[in-house]
């Protein structure tokens, strides 16, 4: 009945294998690719540049604008209609909110920094991968930043707190016959590295207050592992020959 072992054999607090690379889009001012398991995000940063339409300009500081898009072939085989939809717009909004607290655009009034994230392949945790990739791309673009943002999803599968859920775990009732009645909650979290302040916290499903606190604790540990991958990738780019 209960969920005893994770479907892909990981430990409860283990993340999927991660891979990060910086500077993957040469034309952009900054770019990064971030893979976690089968989820793959590519971020490109342009700007600061002039913001149009003009009424969106802010004379006090620059604007951070995010775009999120899953590629048509990225899902499970069903074609995904490209372009903005309700879900993509929402994720773009939470991405801008998650990255905003560390990005300092006070030197660029009336300008905009555009962050484009595309996902060639998705297997749950896309908004987290997108934020982690965007953070690296912004750093490479030389945008003044207080700190890095690392993001990962945590959740409760049946009665266990698990880190970095994949698609099958999020839909456990379909993929594990023993867990027909299991409930899953999925909680994407993004944190500022040094202070561990939360800049993104969303949830699907339901969870008790105690379990939520446990889950966030697990996230605090997990984002550090993401951060380590981001740090390595940024430093590798400029490693001495």
């Amino acid at each position: 009945m209960v969920y005893k072992k994770r479907l892909d054999g990981r430990k409860w607090d283990e993340l999927r294998p991660m891979e990060a690379k910086v500077g993957v889009v040469p034309n952009a001012d900054g770019s990064a690719s971030f893979k976690i398991g089968k989820t793959w995000a590519i971020a490109a940063v342009y700007g600061p540049r002039e913001l149009f339409p003009k009424f969106k300009q802010d004379p006090k500081k620059g604007v951070l604008r995010c775009f999120y898009s899953m590629m048509p072939f990225s899902g499970s085989g069903e074609r995904i209609r490209p372009g903005a939809n309700r879900r993509a717009q929402e994720i773009a909004m939470v991405m801008a909110n998650a990255l905003g607290p560390v990005v300092d655009l006070s030197a660029f009034p009336n300008a905009v920094v555009d962050v484009f994230v595309d996902l060639p392949q998705t297997d749950a945790g896309t908004r987290c991968a997108a934020i982690s990739a965007a953070s690296m791309a912004l750093a490479q673009a030389g945008i003044p930043m207080k700190d890095m943002i690392s993001s990962v999803a945590v959740g409760k599968v049946d009665d266990k707190i698990a880190t970095d859920l994949d698609y099958k775990e999020e839909h456990i009732e379909e993929f594990n016959p023993d867990s027909k009645t299991a409930s899953v909650s999925d909680i994407p979290v993004a944190m500022i590295h040094n202070t561990k302040e939360i800049t993104l916290l969303q949830m699907d499903g339901e969870i008790s207050k105690e379990d939520l606190m446990k889950a966030i604790e697990a996230a605090t540990v997990a984002v550090d592992k993401v951060y380590e991958v981001q740090r390595q990738a940024l430093k590798e780019k400029f490693a001495k020959e």
Partner: peptide, 20 residues
């Protein structure tokens, strides 16, 4: 910023590797 550290006396500075 992403950059190189330069130390002059007591002052710590970072020279950006990229940026606007």
């Amino acid at each position: 910023s992403l950059g190189l550290v330069s130390i002059s006396g007591r002052v710590l500075k970072v020279t950006p590797l990229s940026g606007p």
